[in-house]
Nucleic acid binder design. Sequence first.
DNA 1: GATGAATGAGGATTCATTCAT
DNA 2: AATGAATGAATCCTCATTCAT
Lengths: 212, 212, 212, 212
Amino acid sequence: MPTDPTRTRAAEAATTATRILDVAEQLFAERGYAAVSVRDIAGRVGLNQASLYNHFPGKQALYEAVLERGLAPIREILAHGGAQMLTPEGGDRLLERLVDQLWSTPHIPKLVEREMLDDGTWFESLAREWLTPIYEVGRRAMAATSEPSGWTEEELPLVVVGMYHLLFGFFSAAALLRRVIGVDPQAQEMRRIHLDFVKDASRRLMRPGAAT
Amino acid sequence: MPTDPTRTRAAEAATTATRILDVAEQLFAERGYAAVSVRDIAGRVGLNQASLYNHFPGKQALYEAVLERGLAPIREILAHGGAQMLTPEGGDRLLERLVDQLWSTPHIPKLVEREMLDDGTWFESLAREWLTPIYEVGRRAMAATSEPSGWTEEELPLVVVGMYHLLFGFFSAAALLRRVIGVDPQAQEMRRIHLDFVKDASRRLMRPGAAT
Amino acid sequence: MPTDPTRTRAAEAATTATRILDVAEQLFAERGYAAVSVRDIAGRVGLNQASLYNHFPGKQALYEAVLERGLAPIREILAHGGAQMLTPEGGDRLLERLVDQLWSTPHIPKLVEREMLDDGTWFESLAREWLTPIYEVGRRAMAATSEPSGWTEEELPLVVVGMYHLLFGFFSAAALLRRVIGVDPQAQEMRRIHLDFVKDASRRLMRPGAAT
Amino acid sequence: MPTDPTRTRAAEAATTATRILDVAEQLFAERGYAAVSVRDIAGRVGLNQASLYNHFPGKQALYEAVLERGLAPIREILAHGGAQMLTPEGGDRLLERLVDQLWSTPHIPKLVEREMLDDGTWFESLAREWLTPIYEVGRRAMAATSEPSGWTEEELPLVVVGMYHLLFGFFSAAALLRRVIGVDPQAQEMRRIHLDFVKDASRRLMRPGAAT
DNA sequence: GATGAATGAGGATTCATTCAT
DNA sequence: AATGAATGAATCCTCATTCAT
């Protein structure tokens, strides 16, 4: 399990385990856990089905390894940068780092969205661990700013969910954007547009709107 | 297929087919297509597995019937109400109707989100049929208002996706809200909070923000 | 069960039971017992699956009714005409009647061939009942004629099987004749050709050949 | 697919695939495709049902492999020996080789007969490929001999079908011979009797009979 | 006599996993 | 580390049959 943050994923040697993780990440993101067979994964890696078990003890473990590898950097960013949200400039820097990270592993936000929909017990612990603190920081952030956000206490959870979707939802909706609206969501210029949009939208959501 | 708009879903006779649709809707939304077995559905309806095939020709057809039944009312609302977006009051009325509808069938937004993630060919036609027109209306709406929205042309698709997630994402994140933040997302008072939030957030997203 | 020999099959009222028998006869002949479903039969008759059980107690019983109806006339002919084989002219008359009968129900020879291949216990009694006597008559016929047939005792069974195939095999090979050789085996003129061929070939088989 | 002609089937290593083919050949011949379940085959081989799919991609593919293995030698004989039919001695040699081959795989003629009855599309290509040329050779053979056969042009197809049944029909009728007439069709002496009969009968059919 | 609905048994096939090589 | 082969459990679906209406 790669936990060394100094080694970027691209620089990792393309070990068999890594190649398995890459393929599994993509397939799990595209189709969901149940719709991906071990045969599919092994086949795409160019491996026999049985060989996969030399690297991971099973399908479930492989899935968790994928999730762990993908979520670790995000957790890192949030753990160290949560306090930045208190100022607009800090918020922007945080968003920049997050958007950067998500764009470097675009399957991960889809996986997270699926986890959320599946309401897996695995997700529960995950969420408790790093979403609750974030939520608290965000809550305090909005309460502490001189300009009030204009949201009531009971609306705050929805604001958090909304912010999450502004960030992650872009990747979930990649197919929609491509097919219906004709945008190419993988184009690198989209990265900048996405970042600008997220920054702007978050300001609109977090500061009082003109129309309230 | 219920097309009579005067008959609400709850008032429908609980025919076997309807009960199958209800159970299937819930399971497909909770676990996704591949993770739901025909046995599961039949079992929950209290039916032999084979009996299900007296009502639907197969799993795929059942899934599509679920989607069709769930999406028809939404399509209806959008088809007749798209033009309302041009004024703030009309937009509010549209949102009211949409939130109402989504709350009456809360599994459906999860199904839509899953469809989007799965990038199914079925979704493609669906999206083309009623998402493209909506997008066009929305685009024109934002261009036509006297106060400009403050978004660039290339950001508009992201605004649409954002709006979608503000509306639908609440249901996808129901588990997160319940488990992490402690909110009960099925409580009826949440319906009002959700509506207020969506109205407010949409104004913030669609009108120029102070911070741009 | 139609046992009245004065009523030809065509003249029978197209009762539901008769229509079922007709469809079943065709399908069983074309595909074999196991490959035909009760649904198939009922469907082609324009009947609900369950309705079929108002006319026949089950699939097996229906099959036996088909066989019985189809074989009764043949059995009749053989029972009354076996002795005719003793003279060439009598043999011809017997063949005429047999070919006539087979052409009036061309699915039946295919059914018989399938029965033979399946080696069904049903076939056993059937064969014992009317094939053994025929065989004995044929044996005596060949032994009694002034001109010896030229066959040894041990070859006689093969001669019988050969005669059977000259008569019945035409219908089994209908597809082959149509597709490979380009003959239309349902054309009525084929009936005469078939009869001539059978008569001629039987003479060749039953009388001493020049080359022995 | 065994293509090495020097290795006889019996000498092949009894690999799992070969054992599956053997069992499948027998069951398909005895009962027909639809009446044989994959479980039956696997069970007789002493294999789990799923293991069979490690050797053949499916039931249909297994069936075709059986047919291919069984028909290849026959095709070979006909392809190389068709011209021999032009002389009586050559014809005898051809028949000897064919009878030899059929007796070495006695299930195959039953399979061919079933294919013919089923009128399968698979059979069509098969027939076109090697039955049409044979038919043409046979036609020319009978037209070329100094002594005319005594058949009319339109009867020729029936002669071909008749010859086919004289050869193959013995195996289809094995049950009939055993049960009704009391002959043991698997006894090796029957092989010689069958060959003699086929040779003699073919002369009778191909040369002018006294009674025409 | 006809039918919609129900069902237990069985159909072919795929699943994740194990193990000897 | 890789693989061919094996397997029990599960997959979706079809089967012949029954029964209340």
